Each structure stands twice: as structure tokens, then as C-alpha cells.
Amino acid sequence: MLKVLHINQSDIAGGVASLSMAINGDRLLWARARLKEANREEKQMATTADEVWQLLGELIASQKETDRRIQETERLLKEQIQKTDEQIRAVNKELGELGNRLGEFVEWQVARRR
């Protein structure tokens, strides 16, 4: 069985008008939401830029401190190397003197046996 729908032109016009208002209302809501989001992003960007500058300043200060510490470490290493070199020279001198004494002792033993 077929049912026939009777729709008049004013019903269609009213439906179209309602649909148009709904679509425009959704667009308006979307536009408002997007504007709020854009404002929020702009504020976040400003905050983020400030934070970036702050972090950059902290990084520069940290880098200066790191450079100072590296220079101090290099200075201490040079001092330690100098002390080690002096100790090595002293040990070499003592070993050389001991070698000479041993040589003298051996010569004395050989001369004594003759």
C-alpha cells in the first residue's frame, strides 16, 4: 500500500528556514569557538615566547658557569701534570743514582776478586 504525503510549499519553506538557522547557528558557534581558541593560542604563544627568552637567559648563564668550571678543571689538570712530571724526574734521578751505585758495587766486587 502506498501512502501519499501531502507537503505544501510553506512547510518546505519553514523547514528550509529552520535548517538554515540551525546551520548558521552552528557556524556562529564554530566561529566563536575558533575565535576563543585563537585568543588562547595567542596568549599561550606570548607566554611561550617569554618562557623561551627566560630559558635562553638561563642557558647563557649555565653555559658561562660551565665554561668557568672547564677552565678551572684545565688549570687543576695542568698543575697535577706538572707535579707528576716533577715526581717522575725525581724517581728517574734516584733510579739513575741507584744504577750508578750498583755499577760501582759490581766494579768493586770485580776489583776485589782480582
Rank of each mutant, 00 (worst) to 15 (best):
A38L: 13
K36G: 09
Q63R: 07
D11M: 07
M45L: 09
A17F: 07
E42W: 11
M21F: 13
A22D: 09
Q9K: 03
Q63S: 11
R34V: 15
N39G: 10
L35D: 14
A31G: 12
T66F: 08
Q44H: 06
I60A: 01
I7H: 01
E37T: 15
A31S: 06
L77R: 11
T73W: 05
E42P: 00
I70L: 12
D67C: 03
K43H: 06
A13Y: 03
R68H: 00
D67E: 14
W30N: 11
A22I: 07
L29A: 14
R27Y: 07
A33S: 13
I23L: 12
E42F: 13
D11L: 09
T66Y: 03
A46V: 09
L35C: 07
R32A: 09
R34G: 13
L56W: 05
L29I: 08
E58F: 03
T66G: 01
A33H: 11
V4Y: 00
E51N: 13
A13F: 08
K78Q: 09
K64T: 05
L56P: 00
G57C: 02
T48Y: 04
T66A: 06
T47R: 07
D11Q: 05
R40S: 10
T47E: 15
D67T: 04
L77Y: 07
N8L: 04
S10M: 08
L76S: 02
L28E: 13
S10L: 10
A46H: 01
L2R: 02
E42Q: 13
R34C: 13
K3Y: 13
S18Q: 11
Q9D: 13
S18D: 15
W53Q: 11
L29D: 08
A38S: 15
R69G: 04
L59P: 00
R68K: 02
A13I: 14
A38F: 14
W30K: 12
K36V: 12
E41T: 12
E51W: 08
L28T: 15
R69H: 07
G57Y: 01
E65M: 01
A17W: 02
R75V: 04
R34D: 15
Q44P: 00
V16L: 14
E51H: 04
S20V: 12
W30D: 06
L5H: 03
Q80F: 05
D67L: 09
